[in-house]
Simulated assay, not measured.
Amino acid sequence: MTDVEPPELPRGIALAWGVAANPQRGPKREMSVEKIVEAAVELADAEGLGAVSMAAVASKLGFTPMSLYRYVSAKDDLLLLMQEEATGLPPEEHREQDGWRAQLRALFEAQAHLYLAHPWLLAIPITGSPITPSSSAWLDAALAALEPTPLNPVERLAVALSVTGAARWYGIVVAGYAEQSRSSGLGPDEITAREAELFDRVITAEEFPALRAAIEAGVFLSEDDPFRFGIERIFDGIESYIAGLDGGAERTASEPWPEEESAELADDKKVRDARKAVRAAEKALRDARKLERQAVKEATERIARRQ
Results as ranks from 00 to 15, higher is better:
M1C: 07
D3G: 09
E5G: 04
I13Y: 05
G18M: 00
P27Q: 13
P27R: 07
V33K: 01
E34S: 06
E34K: 06
K35M: 08
V37D: 09
A40F: 06
E42D: 15
E42K: 11
G50M: 07
S53Y: 12
A55I: 09
A56K: 11
A56Y: 09
V57L: 09
V57D: 08
P65V: 13
V72C: 10
S73N: 15
D76T: 15
L89I: 12
E96W: 02
G99F: 02
A106W: 02
L107Q: 05
A112Q: 05
L116A: 08
P125Q: 03
P130C: 00
S136I: 11
W138P: 05
L139D: 14
A142G: 14
A145E: 03
P150N: 06
L151Q: 05
N152F: 08
P153S: 06
L157R: 07
T164A: 15
A167F: 08
R168P: 09
I172N: 08
I172T: 15
P188S: 11
D189A: 13
I191T: 00
A196M: 11
T204L: 00
F208V: 05
P209V: 04
R212H: 15
I215Y: 01
D225V: 01
R228K: 05
E232N: 13
R233D: 07
I234T: 12
Y241P: 01
I242W: 11
G248D: 11
E261R: 12
L265S: 07
D273K: 12
K297Y: 07
K297Q: 07
R302H: 12
R302Y: 05
R302C: 02
I303H: 05
I303A: 14
I303R: 10
